[in-house]
Design a protein around this nucleic acid. Structure first.
Lengths: 147, 147
DNA sequence: CTTGACCTTGGACCCGGGTCCAAGGTGCAG
DNA sequence: CTGCACCTTGGACCCGGGTCCAAGGTCAAG
């Protein structure tokens, strides 16, 4: 076996691998989503490759709207394969229900929005000039899309 | 016509009607989602009944995950029935696409979570004692669900 | 007129989730 | 050995979306 102390990822590498700033990685560690990694003799964080996975899981869950604290619970489940203390299956099922509810709500609003969109068939400013649409810039320029 | 100055809703009534604190109503006004209502001679806000609707729309959109500023854009569309300045249909369609994307992501994560839930068939703490499941309380009590 | 419920304002504060910064330490290349 | 990129820490700051508070005004009932 070639000495397995292969030196894993440095924080910037890990961060780059999932596309977040290093600050965020440290932040996640601070709030307990990422276990404190080993350190190099010099004190640098030394992540195992699996951390990429974990971070991606976090990103995924979080894009979903789960709060970090909840993601923490899920990670605990994922890590241990069992309840961190209380019925984890319960927890997962609840979350699942939440998610279902969110999906339902989203779907409903989607319909509402679609209806709104449909309701302005003729509005469609005379000459939209597709490149010119003002991004939600703040007042101060008050979008000169009169052209 | 019986004098139409019928005195609409006071802030608390409006707030109660949609289930938010009065503070939130004022806050929405501050940030421009709710137009400043008429005032009674004494200076009290005097809302028309339609404000309930608007507030509900806000709640709905916002439950959806739209940011208040975006909701503002939608409201502008809704109010005028046309672009507040730039192609509103565009905007709506973009949002719609966003929402679709969110739904897709949620659905994907739902699946992932379902898989996780399925993956712990036997875990299920011996005696869940359904009433006893510890709410995500902070450490300090470290949930005594040993019973 | 008094009382109490409700209203007004402005400003401070809170939480989540970062994001930035300064001062100093590491480590590898040249 | 010097440089330079990268790392460390702690703490301050930011934004969105509220939430609370104090000091004072309004108004309807009794």
């Amino acid at each position: 076996m070639t000495t397995t102390a292969a030196r894993g990822l440095r924080i910037a590498e890990l961060a780059r691998a999932v596309g977040v700033p290093t600050d965020t990685v440290r932040y996640y560690e601070r709030v307990g989503l990422l276990p404190p990694p080993k350190r190099t003799p010099g004190g640098y964080r030394d992540y195992e490759v699996s951390a990429v996975d974990r971070l991606q899981f976090i990103q995924g869950s979080q894009r979903l709207g789960l709060r970090l604290v909840d993601i923490g619970h899920l990670l605990a489940v994922r890590d241990t394969g069992r309840c961190p203390c209380e019925p984890a299956g319960e927890l997962l099922r609840r979350r699942l229900a939440d998610v279902d509810a969110q999906i339902a709500q989203l779907t409903a609003l989607r319909a509402e929005m679609a209806a709104m969109a449909a309701a302005l068939p003729q509005a469609e400013c005379p000459d939209p000039t597709p490149g010119t649409w003002c991004p939600p810039e703040e007042e101060g320029g008050e979008c000169a899309c009169s052209s």
